[in-house]
Write a protein that binds this DNA or RNA. Structure first.
Lengths: 257, 257
DNA sequence: ACCTGAACACCGTTCAAGT
DNA sequence: ACCTGAACACCGTTCAAGT
């Protein structure tokens, strides 16, 4: 595939005619396959065929399939994080996370991969970037780690719900990323099994995945802001905190106006 | 395996001597294998051998491996959610999520499975249960879905970080669930690549996974509590909200006392 | 050193044949 | 109807052989 390279690029840069196999070229080709056909389409045989080489040759440049997927995800993440600058940290976090969400929904294999390998470079990039913004937000040092990891974990959880590789019920065509569209899980005896889901079924059908994602980010940002204001008596800055810092939630429950 | 059954159970209930293959028995055997050897250990051949049958026989009771894993995860989740009762909803949510966290860290295959199949029964159980507690918490109906999904997504994100199947660097023996222990990712040129992670490296090494998980839950609970108090002007109760309901986070950033 | 591609080990799944 | 187990299709990975 790579029509561009064959037609124009070779002609413009004759010295690059040697199409030597490099890790960068392999990862690039892998991304093309992944974006086009999903996670299942990426095979060492298919990849080798696209690169006009043998399957074994790839192992001279990548250790195994895990490293290949990890590198592909890292490159995608780097692109997403590149265009997300802003002066205001909260705005940056919104733009950042929205960009990751868009990339995941556009390329479901990325969500699967982020979630499949713990703390691969792509996740570290995201974590570091969010951590920097959280710091800029004014969160005290002792809580920065907690705040950043809450955001990252939330994003990873959302990412996990967009894996298209495994279909438990392939009932209808239109499948919202959230909960199988209509009939199967919420009828008959499931009314007793899933009382909450049945009750909010209307929202479940009508809701917009992106709006829901944003709502979750706002919930966490609110919690982080409170974290910033309350962490003043613990003072020290060590890792250990005496108790869950949010007992006022429990307290407020009683005195409804 | 199954020493208990062979020794005592058969003797007590002679009428159950027919060890007919059923989905329940297959799932039970699968869980035994998964808990003992992890996700990679579960094979139709190994499972059939444990059940003293042929591999093909299993397909008369389960459609495929995905259904088997989904059923195994659902059973584990049902057990966890069974013992987590409390009168106070916030306390229930803490107990509930802590139980799920413990189960995932004890059996990493469960975390992988929760994250591998979108909206399988195990996740629906968790979502429904959390949604019920969120409702009891007094969150207005329009925001219950957002609140519950934020908590569930966070838990799924944490679950994704405990997958032991794929090791990117198997450097040291002790691997905290969080970020590879020490050397590899945070030395040399990575100081520039991961400035935030390098700065908080101390917390990264010393932190406790469970405390971090709790901290994230508290952050989200705080955000949910605020959601409950602020959603008063939007009034209607429909799905659509005009804007991110948490602009006061941005506002508060300026006027530090 | 880099590449080739057949071969190996191991999956999930199927299916003709038994009972 | 339920079970058997060999066979099929397809992986990731290896490795003797080439250049």
């Amino acid at each position: 595939m790579c029509q561009d390279d064959l037609v124009s690029d070779v002609w413009q840069r004759p010295e690059r005619r040697s199409d030597a196999l490099t890790k960068a070229r392999i990862v690039e080709a892998a991304i093309t396959i992944l974006n086009a056909g999903g996670a299942d389409a990426l095979t060492f045989r298919a990849l080798a065929a696209d690169l006009s080489t043998g399957a074994g040759a790839l192992y001279h440049h990548v250790a195994n399939k895990g490293e290949l997927l990890s590198a592909a995800a890292a490159e995608m993440m780097a692109e997403v994080l590149a265009d997300a600058g802003s002066t205001d940290p909260a705005t940056s976090i919104r733009a950042l996370t929205a960009g990751v969400f868009d990339e995941i929904t556009a390329h479901p294999w990325l969500g699967s991969q982020l979630v499949a390998a713990p703390w691969q470079p792509a996740v570290l990039q995201l974590f570091d970037r969010i951590g920097s913004e959280v710091t800029a937000l004014g969160v005290p040092e002792a809580a920065q780690f907690d705040a950043a990891s809450a955001l990252v974990h939330y994003i990873l959880g959302v990412a996990s719900q967009y894996d298209a590789s495994q279909h438990l019920d392939q009932a209808d065509a239109d499948r919202p990323g959230f909960i199988a569209s209509s009939t199967s899980p919420l009828v008959g005896p499931d009314s007793e099994r899933y009382p909450f889901l049945v009750r909010i079924e209307q929202q479940l059908v009508e809701h917009d995945d992106r709006q829901q994602f944003y709502a979750g980010i706002e919930i966490i940002l609110t919690g982080i802001a409170a974290l910033r204001d309350t962490e003043r008596d613990s003072a020290v800055g060590g890792v250990q905190r005496q108790e869950h810092p949010c007992e006022q939630l429990h307290a407020r429950t009683d005195n409804r106006h």
